[in-house]
Design a protein around this nucleic acid. Structure first.
Lengths: 97, 69, 69, 97
DNA sequence: GCGGGCTGACGTCAGCCGTG
DNA sequence: CACGGCTGACGTCAGCCCGC
C-alpha cells in the first residue's frame, strides 16, 4: 500500500528494472514486508487447497467404503453383473446377421 | 525578520536537514521493527503448516502402505 | 601520575563505563544482524520444505485417489 | 554453542525458571539464535525422516508391482491358490477322526 | 538493594541509489 | 551530475533483569 502501490500494478518494474538482487532482495523495508506478505498469502492458499483436496478425498473414500460394507450392491461403471442375463437378448449371439 | 526569512542561512539549512533525517530515522526504525516481527510471524506460520503437512503425509503414507502390503 | 592512578576519578569511571557500553553496543548490533539473517535463512529453508511437502502430498493424494476410484 | 551451551544440557531452566515468555521468547539474541537453530534442526530431521519413509514406500511398492507384472506368481500371506489341490490330502476331509 | 550486562530507542554521520 | 530519500553503523541514554 505504501511502497510502490501494489494495488495499481500499472507500470512494470519501476526502479532500474534490475534483474539481479533488486527483486528478491529489496533495500526498502516496505518492499521486503510486501514481498514476504505476498509469498505468505500464496503459500497459505496452496496449503489450504491441498488440505481441502485431502479432506475431500478422505470423505469420498469413507463414503465409498461405507456403501460397500452396508450392502452387497455393486455399483460402478463396469458392466453390472446383476443386470446380465435378465433380458433374453443378452444370450442371443449376433452371428446370425 | 529579514535576516533568516529564507533558508539561505547555512545553519538553518543544516538544522532542517537534521530534522528531516531525525524523522526519517524514526520511520526507518519503525519499519525495521515491523519487518522483524513480520519475519517472526512468518516463521511461526510456516512452522505450523510444515507440522500439519508432515503429519498428513505420515497418515497418507500409512494408508498407502496398507493398500500395497 | 598518582592523581588518577585508581578508578576513583568520577570522570574516569564515566569514560570507562561509556567505553564498555560502546563495545557492548557493537556486539549487540552484530548479534541482532546475525539474528535477522538467521530468521531470513530459516524462512527460506521452511519455504523449500513446505513446497516439497505440498508437492509430495499432491502426488500421494493422486495415488490414493487412483486406488479408491 | 555460545548461549547456554546446548551440548551439555546440565542444569534445567537457568534464569528465573520462568514459564511465561522467558523460554520461547528470550531477551538475548544469542538465546534466540540458539532456539531457532535447535528448532530448525529438529524440523529438518523430521522432514528428512518423512521423505525417507516415502521413498522407501515408493521403492517397495514399485518392486511389488514389477514382481506381479513379470510373472503370474502369486506370493502372499493368503492361502496360495496354486498350491491348493496339488496334494491329494487337501481333498480328504478330517471328519474321519 | 545494587552493580553490571544487554537491549530498546534516539540523534547523527556516511553512503547507496533512484530521480530529475 | 547534483539532490534527496532510506538505510547501515556509530555512540549515548534509559531501562530491564539477573546474579551478588
Amino acid at each position: 500500500m505504501s511502497a510502490t502501490g501494489t494495488g495499481g500494478c500499472g507500470p512494470g518494474p519501476g526502479p532500474t528494472s534490475g534483474s539481479g538482487s533488486g527483486a528478491s532482495n529489496p533495500r526498502k523495508f516496505s518492499e521486503k514486508i510486501a514481498l514476504h506478505t505476498q509469498r505468505q498469502a500464496e503459500e497459505t492458499a496452496a496449503f489450504q487447497e491441498v488440505m481441502m483436496d485431502i479432506t475431500s478425498t478422505r470423505l469420498q473414500a469413507q463414503k465409498l467404503r461405507l456403501a460397500r460394507s452396508q450392502g452387497p450392491y455393486y455399483s460402478g461403471s463396469l458392466p453390472n453383473v446383476n443386470q446380465i442375463g435378465r433380458n433374453p437378448q443378452d444370450f442371443q449371439v449376433t452371428d446370425a446377421a | 525578520g529579514l535576516s533568516q526569512g529564507k533558508s539561505d542561512d547555512p545553519t538553518m539549512k543544516r538544522e532542517i536537514r537534521l530534522a528531516k533525517n531525525r524523522e526519517a530515522a524514526r520511520e526507518c526504525r519503525r519499519k525495521k521493527k515491523e519487518y522483524v516481527k513480520c519475519l517472526e510471524n512468518r516463521v511461526a506460520v510456516l512452522e505450523n503448516q510444515n507440522k500439519t503437512l508432515i503429519e498428513e503425509l505420515k497418515t497418507l503414507k500409512d494408508l498407502y502402505c496398507v493398500k500395497t502390503g
